[in-house]
């Protein structure tokens, strides 16, 4: 457990607005092939401990924003400024697909970020076990991905993203392909996991309900061209559980976010 102790920030996350800055996107635009504007003039600040959702219809550039932050492509205009030096393993990623290596066991899949830094399996075995324990898969370390259900594969993917204790975790619609029951369970587990290790998360989704349940900041985006329309804050305190999901507060927040999303869609029409 000592290995997975929280990064610079303590597990008790400071209230919104008082958290130290993690990164800033200033005037980010991305134009593909000189023609298609995927993202236009995006300004965003991200603080340590934020759980920020990017919410919007398809084509609003939320995945593009994520890929830019991940460093998989360069912006056409604007800059992404990280607070403090950047190093390998600063970022963990969960894609919509579990994206596991089918030839490797669960434990060896989770080992990947360490392996690419040249750390032997034996030297990080304890951390891998802890990560698998946190996602409830300690009994499946030796299994192959094909032997797992869709939800379990996603848990492995999450464990792999968290195992190095990165400063930022990017999640690109990770639960979109799962059934509703599994999705709710994973939402709960994700919050519990974040609570334990106190990291920062950017979560791309097109589900209003998911974004309200998970995040304390929701950035609503619109399409054609992809841009940020407004930001909604969800002040409800963590930990959030099934009680929150059925509370009037939750219902009120989803209404606020739904309206914001409708405005974003309306602008486009």
């Amino acid at each position: 457990m000592t290995h997975l102790s929280p990064h610079p920030v303590s597990a008790e996350v400071l209230p919104l607005g008082q958290r130290p800055r993690l990164l800033e996107m200033a005037g980010i635009s991305k134009v593909f092939n000189g023609q298609v504007t995927a993202l236009q003039g995006m300004n965003l600040t991200l603080d340590e401990g934020d759980f920020l959702s990017l919410l919007g219809p398809s084509g609003c550039g939320k995945s593009t924003a994520l890929r830019l932050i991940a460093g998989l492509m360069r912006p056409t205009a604007g800059r992404i400024l990280w607070n403090g030096p950047q190093s390998r393993g600063d970022i963990g990623v969960v894609f919509q697909e579990p994206t596991l290596m089918p030839w490797a066991t669960v434990a060896r899949n989770v080992w990947l970020p360490f392996r690419l830094r040249g750390q032997s399996f034996a030297s990080v075995k304890g951390r891998i076990e802890t990560a698998l324990d946190l996602v409830g898969l300690s009994n499946f370390a030796g299994s192959y991905p094909r032997e797992l259900s869709g939800g379990m594969k996603m848990r492995v993917s999450i464990a792999r993203a968290f195992v190095t204790n990165p400063r930022l975790i990017l999640m690109d619609e990770p639960f979109a392909a799962l059934d509703e029951i599994t999705r709710q369970k994973l939402n709960n587990d994700l919050l519990a996991l974040k609570e334990k290790i106190g990291c920062t998360v950017i979560f791309v989704t097109h589900s209003v309900f998911e974004s309200v349940f998970l995040s304390d900041r929701i950035v609503v985006m619109a399409a054609r061209p992809g841009r940020v329309v407004e930001e909604v804050r969800v002040p409800a305190p963590y930990p959030r559980d099934m009680g929150f999901r059925t509370s009037p507060e939750y219902a009120a927040q989803t209404l606020v976010v739904s309206k914001a999303l409708r405005r974003a869609m309306g602008e486009e029409a």
Partner: peptide, 14 residues
């Protein structure tokens, strides 16, 4: 090769 895995390797600086 799975494109997402290629991206993942790139993010981890492989």
């Amino acid at each position: 090769t799975d494109r997402n895995l290629v991206d993942l390797y790139a993010i981890y600086g492989a």
